[in-house]
Amino acid sequence: MAKKDPSKPGRIKQIIETYQLTRKNDPRIGWILLGVFLLAGGAGFALVLLLLRGSLVFPIVFGVLTGILGVLIVFGRRAQRAALGSIEGQPGAAAAALGMLRRGWKTDPAIAFTKQQDVIHRLVGPPGIVLIAEGNPNRLKPLMASERRKHERVAAETPIHEVYVGDGPGEVPLTKLVKHVSKLGRNIKPAQMTDVLARLKALDANRSNVPLPKGPVPTSMKGARQNMRGR
């Protein structure tokens, strides 16, 4: 039997920590979750009571379970939003947010950047290649054009998408980044993705060994994601 890693908090502690983090950015979370529990639980109770007249035991149990399910769904979404809000504006926030994606995606943070810490991250998944820029759009556009040409040379048949993270016109807010890239379509299959990754590995091997720009890349999204999954 595998021993529990003492450095990792238990599931209950993880949930408490996630709730505390969420409450800092969403002070009404407690009342919202209570309301969700009462509404969802009440609806579940009433539905089963109408279908199964007689004993109240099953309607009560079903109502409680429905309320808990509603709380988990709402809490998960608001916790994710709060975690994104806590890192918004930090260098590398987009790369950290992309960690919320499920399996089947490959993220390469800061494949290109400027001296002012404007960066381009690369995401490879079902849509193809997604180049994600965060920082000053005016400084990023020539860098994005350069990266697009490099990627087209090694993966000409693979769709390449450009995404600018921000709150300006034509930009995608950080809180909607994961949802946005998930809706870009399914253009390549897993076998094709393996070939694309091999081509990109060759491309990256030819890049000059320039150090990353100064400034920490936020890691709080990783912890929040693990907490939400109960790891």
Rank of each mutant, 00 (worst) to 15 (best):
M1L: 10
A2G: 06
K4D: 06
D5L: 09
P6F: 00
N25V: 04
N25H: 15
D26F: 13
D26C: 11
P27T: 03
L33P: 02
L34W: 04
G35C: 02
F37C: 09
G41T: 13
A43N: 04
A43R: 02
V48I: 15
F58K: 10
P59H: 11
P59D: 09
I60C: 12
F62Q: 10
G67S: 09
L69M: 14
L69C: 13
A79C: 03
Q80T: 12
A83L: 12
A83H: 09
G89H: 01
G89M: 05
P91A: 06
A93K: 07
L98P: 04
K106N: 13
T114R: 09
T114K: 02
V119G: 00
V124L: 03
V124C: 06
L140T: 01
L140C: 01
L143W: 01
M144L: 10
K150R: 14
H151Y: 11
T158F: 03
T158V: 15
I160Q: 08
H161R: 07
V163D: 02
V163K: 06
G168N: 08
P169V: 09
S182H: 04
S182T: 11
L184W: 05
L184V: 08
N187C: 05
N187S: 14
I188Q: 07
K189P: 00
K189H: 12
A191K: 15
Q192S: 11
R199G: 10
R199N: 14
R199Q: 15
K201E: 12
L203F: 08
L203R: 13
S208T: 11
N209G: 06
P213F: 06
P213Y: 05
V217A: 12
T219V: 13
T219A: 12
G223A: 08
G223S: 07
N227T: 04
G230Q: 04
R231A: 07
